[in-house]
Amino acid sequence: MNIFRFAGDMTHLISILVLLLKIYATKSCSGISLKTQELYALVFLTRYLDLFTDFISVYNTIMKLVFIASSLAVVCCMRMHRVVRRSYDKDLDTFRHYFLILASFVLALLVNEKFTFQEIFWAFSIYLEALAILPQLVLLQRSGNVDNLTGQYVFFLGAYRAFYILNWIYRYFTEQHFSRWIACVSGLVQTVLYADFFYYYFISWKNNAKMQLPA
């Protein structure tokens, strides 16, 4: 464990806490893409298949449980909660996310560390996570204005993978035979997808104005 990875995990945790705060405090999920939340639940469920077979550390196990539980809780809340689900932007959240699942799975079959059930699903979860934010970014683009908590949620979600890139650089220089090129390339793509969001987020922060995404 190094400071970059720990900062990344904490940033990821903060993004989840901000999302939960937004939904429970405002009793609204407007501006949140249910499809992105579903993709993230799938990412965690397929990535942590080794939850009960490989024990890494208490920290690792607890964080995996928190990520799985929180992503499922958000999906259930957005689907079931009678108050929250009324605020879901159903007609704006129309990204065909099944294509993302299919593309990631096909790529995972072709490019993986080892052609085993667990490794294929691990690669699948890595590729899917890189694309999972797309429905959310499209939804924000369509809805134009971004409320503060949603903006902070997306910002922290993007920032966490940027910390992981620093972590991979650090591990590359400090550990022999460290090669996580599947996660590295995918993490780079993931972070680049946030680039324009980060730009408009920074502009709104500099002008102390409400965040506007160009229509």
Binding site: D9, D54, W122, N167, R180, A183
Partner: peptide, 10 residues
């Protein structure tokens, strides 16, 4: 043998 390395990252 290339033991399948554990994924120690989240």
């Amino acid at each position: 043998t290339e033991a399948v390395r554990k994924h120690d990252e989240l």
